[in-house]
Amino acid sequence: HNGKLCKLKGIAPLQLGKCNITGWLLGNPECDSLLPARSWSYIVETPNSENGACYPGDLIDYEELREQLSSVSSLERFEIFPKESSWPNHTFNGVTVSCSHRGKSSFYRNLLWLTKKGDSYPKLTNSYVNNKGKEVLVLWGVHHPSSSDEQQSLYSNGNAYVSVASSNYNRRFTPEIAARPKVRDQHGRMNYYWTLLEPGDTIIFEATGNLIAPWYAFALSRGFESGIITSNASMHECNTKCQTPQGAINSNLPFQNIHPVTIGECPKYVRSTKLRMVTGLRNIPSIQYRGLFGAIAGFIEGGWTGMIDGWYGYHHQNEQGSGYAADQKSTQNAINGITNKVNSVIEKMNTQFTAVGKEFNNLEKRMENLNKKVDDGFLDIWTYNAELLVLLENERTLDFHDLNVKNLYEKVKSQLKNNAKEIGNGCFEFYHKCDNECMESVRNGTYDYPKYSEESKLNREKIDGVKLESMGVYQILAIYSTVASSLVLLVSLGAISFWMCSNGSLQCRICI
């Protein structure tokens, strides 16, 4: 991952900044910058967002509201009850120091605090018919004063009620008058409520006091790749198909172990950190130390980045220098085999997901714990399936590479015959000098055995068991695999060879 928040398929997220979902939807004055928000790819909250409900109280069923919003990608904020005409018999300019803005008392931008007009609070009834052709999110509140005197001074009615009804919602609220500790300079409380109004449905408000009335509502448009994440990451000019709280993932790998919460087309989250597919040879310690064997393909974004291909070729060293050249036929066979294998694994496992966190309130801790156990169970199954699949494929890959290298080895052996000696570690020792032209003939299969047989015969008789390297004779190393990324691999195959001279070296080696 890149540690950044990015656009998702070209669409920017909605960053709530210092506000949370509650503050944004109710219209906390400190969240005025969010009022123009219309569309987004996903919503970003920060872990310690401080601006929620400015007048103390709870947004009821907040967790369910977050779940609903996680599939919303755009909205239209509109005046559901026009301020100047909807409440002619009531005062609608209630403000509070708890919702101060720029040093002055204020109130929510989407709600109206209705109080008595003169000395009376006549029963009010108002309704709205949803003609938007889509779901409408309606929010309101109920004020709970701290004393009967406060109730009387604001609403005149000691036994007030609030009723809200639609086809799918029907509740009646009565204020709970009680002494409470002071929070944000208030002994009173406000509880906030919401409902989704279906197209064509009607919502009716009736009250004799204590109503925090809707002013603006939201017509919602769903987008199934949307979601809500909690993150401290910063926004950058970048684009992605998959976003996590820790950063964007741009990967076609089937798995990731970065974060379980994802938005967009994302690899499946697994616990494993070692889900690797081999593309090189079986481990040979001396070669492995030099980083030549054991190439791997990573299938977990965050564990290993991208696929690494092994390729086969020849390396030689003689009086004229040293050089490398790919054996294109065996390399292409290996590439085709690995590509098919990788595609097979991805096809089997690479279903892209959006995974969002589930919200539970403080009273639902047991449910949250149960949900976590269920999620953990599914996660263990996914991890096991992934590891088992790759384990089985790896064994076949190792066998496949062994065969490829063996074929190259036999190709060289059949040409050199007794003009060189096998020394048991995949290397041959020449009994004759071999210049670049000679080396090329070994690589392309045109090695002239009779041409060098007499010199080889004489050297075999002279050496008589002495280690060949100390006599200045020449080696050919018969097994060799270097490691390159897919891009470098293609470039390498396009070149005939490249040279690395070893000044004054008397050794001649050709490596497979």
Rank of each mutant, 00 (worst) to 15 (best):
V374Y: 15
N343V: 10
G494H: 00
E395A: 05
Y431H: 15
G294P: 01
V488T: 15
Y269F: 15
Q332E: 14
Y480G: 08
M235Y: 15
K348L: 11
S481V: 03
G302N: 09
I496G: 05
G306A: 15
N239P: 00
K421T: 04
E410Y: 14
S251I: 08
I338L: 13
D448R: 12
M235K: 03
V412C: 04
I512P: 01
S485K: 07
K413V: 04
T273R: 14
S485I: 06
S322A: 13
C427P: 09
I308W: 04
L275F: 02
W499L: 07
V345C: 12
F428P: 07
Y409K: 10
Y474H: 14
S486L: 14
P260Q: 00
K406R: 15
C434Y: 05
Y314C: 10
A484D: 00
E454H: 08
S286H: 06
A248R: 08
C434D: 01
H316V: 14
L477P: 02
E455Y: 07
A326T: 02
Y384I: 10
D375Q: 08
Y452W: 15
S470D: 14
K274Y: 00
K451H: 10
K451F: 07
E319L: 10
A334Q: 08
Q317A: 08
A355N: 01
I300E: 02
N250H: 08
T240I: 03
C508N: 05
V442P: 12
S322E: 15
I258M: 09
S486G: 04
R282P: 03
K433H: 09
L398R: 15
Q246D: 07
S286N: 04
G247W: 03
N283T: 06
Y289C: 01
G321Q: 05
Q352Y: 00
L388F: 14
T240G: 03
D435G: 09
M500H: 13
V342T: 01
I338H: 03
M439Q: 15
E347T: 08
K421F: 10
S485T: 11
G280Y: 03
E422V: 13
V278T: 02
V488F: 13
Y384V: 09
L490G: 11
N283R: 02
Y452T: 14
